[in-house]
Nucleic acid binder design. Structure first.
Lengths: 331, 331
DNA sequence: ATAATTTGTGCAATCGTTCCCAAAAATAGA
DNA sequence: TCTATTTTTGGGAACGATTGCACAAATTAT
């Protein structure tokens, strides 16, 4: 099973490579008979154009890059799933990289992807990324970028996000409706857009229910679990919470660890809400209710924007923002 | 920031492209002075060889394919993590595909990867894959394949697996040591090698403890959750189990769903052991003890074998099998 | 029958590299 | 000073595909 080239076909059929090429691309200039012969033969020997040669010629690699903080996270792996689905359908392949929440690696990867001539990039920013200067460099010349989930504050970029405000509002509201009055909010670093939006949803729900907000109940955490304990300790010692709204998978897990260590799960006093895509949250002890993001759909939509851009090279398309709805899981 | 080519450098420095090329690859035939000038200038203009041109010339894409049943599964995403790590370090990139447990898609993907000229493939077989005829076709001519986790029975292929027998033996033994006598085993389809190996570990532990094995306690399940209930029902109605050793993430989750539906988690009667990489199993109610596979390490080792093969083109290397240890998590 | 048009095919350049081969320049030996 | 050798450089083919251009053959019009 050696790879067949145009030249092989040309030689076998006693034609020039150009004729063969044109016949296969169904050019109008080629005789129908010749066309049929060529097509027949190509099928027989299982000819597939060499995608690398095509890339070199066409200056396009039919590959898109994806950068996420971490693959082994349900939200991201589902999003990748969606990206993959759309990309595959449209003849692109997907190259995946992880920033491991490090700006430095993010910079590296972007450069690498650019050097490797991927046609565009989908990215969910690392927690340590404060701005997108390192990406703007590239995105200027015909190198499309779409941000999803963890997006920059900038206006004129492509983004796909969820309605974080509403998600947080609904979750908080739910807890209040169950009689909770001192709802702690453990959330991601304040630089991230998701943090800000969720925080204001939380605050609005409190306000709408005439509950005084207490800054001691709000804790910002990075994604390193060793730093989580401090926040959790402070909460329990000083703030007397009766429910927890936790903004990320990682923090929620640390929290449960700590919670079990303290044997607090025996008491039925507390309620828990997370903003996560953990498929198994309801199996936890005590159960973790969740605001679920349509991760797969986020992936699909992001890929759609990117690929539409790529295939529409003529004029620079307007930057697009898509906002998807979250969903509550409370069972 | 346009991409600089060899020709650009040559023109700027009034040299030929061949000289520039050689200078950059540090050929002995080039004058030191010239070399320095070229290297200096290349650095200044940020020259990066076009990987696509390199691929076309060298007939190698510096890309490896990975096929897994499902990305959104902790075991696989961690394994991919390991693969990525090793590949990235060695200058390869990783293209990921999902078979969704379908042989048909697996066949498609293999062909696609071959057509796209990836240098080799790492694969964990789909549950519906009974043999590897569809892969052998390709792996004959300089297209390396390494199997991991879900591997074929064939002898002369590269494999990376865990010691499934011992993992199952230890888990079963643990349950017995806690006084359990009627340990049910829910496991994957009997065609998979992992199924067979784990089953025999389970049986050996029973035998070593002089416990009569009962075929009613053994249930094979595919990966479709709607088919799991039947098995679970039968177990509870006819077999009076007091512990469960469950061989896969997916089945374990179905099981917990059902278990909670029946409100059985109020009783402390049962114990649970899984053969999974769910990071959060101990947070479940009741807790799920686990046999953990070194997923990351499996990825690294698999990638190592593949890349070593690729870089050692001279003679066909002997097929390698690596068996890694599992680890028990019982807290 | 001759010119004009249509139709079918091939040549060669291109994309960015590498590398064989030959040519030019520099050095050595006499 | 003039070969002989070594060092350094350039020309051009190759990798596999596409495509503008030229040209031959076939067809039609006059």
């Amino acid at each position: 099973m050696e790879q067949v080239t145009l030249k092989d076909i040309a030689k076998a059929l006693n034609l020039s490579t150009s004729t063969v090429s044109r016949a296969l691309r169904d050019s109008y200039q080629i005789n129908k008979k010749t066309k049929n012969i060529v097509i027949e033969y190509a099928k027989k020997v299982n000819y597939i154009p060499n995608p690398i040669a095509l890339s070199l010629k066409g200056n396009t690699s039919k590959a898109i890059g994806v950068i996420v903080p971490e693959i082994a996270n349900h939200f991201f792996s589902q999003a990748i799933n969606g990206i993959e689905d759309e990309a595959y359908r449209r003849g692109y392949h997907v190259v995946i990289f992880q920033s491991h929440e490090s700006l430095e690696r993010e910079v590296d990867i972007i450069k690498h992807l650019y050097d490797r001539r991927v046609d565009g990039v989908l990215i969910s920013l690392s927690a340590s990324t404060k701005n997108i200067d390192h990406i703007k460099n590239y995105s200027e010349n015909n190198f499309s970028v779409v941000y999803f989930d963890r997006v920059p504050k900038d206006e004129n970029v492509n983004k796909v996000v969820v309605d974080n405000f509403k998600g947080a509002y609904d979750a908080t509201n739910f807890l209040i409706s169950k009689g909770k009055k001192r709802i702690a909010h453990l959330t991601s670093p304040p630089e991230l857009s998701i943090t800000v939006e969720r925080l204001s949803g939380y605050k609005k729900a409190l306000a709408d229910n005439k509950i005084q907000e207490d800054s001691n109940l709000i804790k910002f955490c990075d994604f390193k679990s060793k730093n989580h304990n401090k926040a959790i300790n402070e909460l329990f010692e000083n703030s007397n919470p009766d429910a927890f709204f936790i903004s990320s998978d990682r923090i929620a897990l640390s929290f449960y660890e700590e919670f079990q260590k303290r044997k607090l799960h025996k008491k039925d006093k507390y309620m828990f809400f997370g903003f996560t895509n953990l498929a198994v949250a309801h199996l936890f002890n005590p159960p973790l209710f969740t605001v679920v993001q349509p991760a797969f759909e986020i992936g699909v939509q992001s890929a759609k924007i990117l690929l539409d851009n790529l295939e529409n090279k003529k004029d620079k398309p307007e930057p697009k923002t898509i906002i998807l709805k979250t969903q509550m899981k409370t069972n």
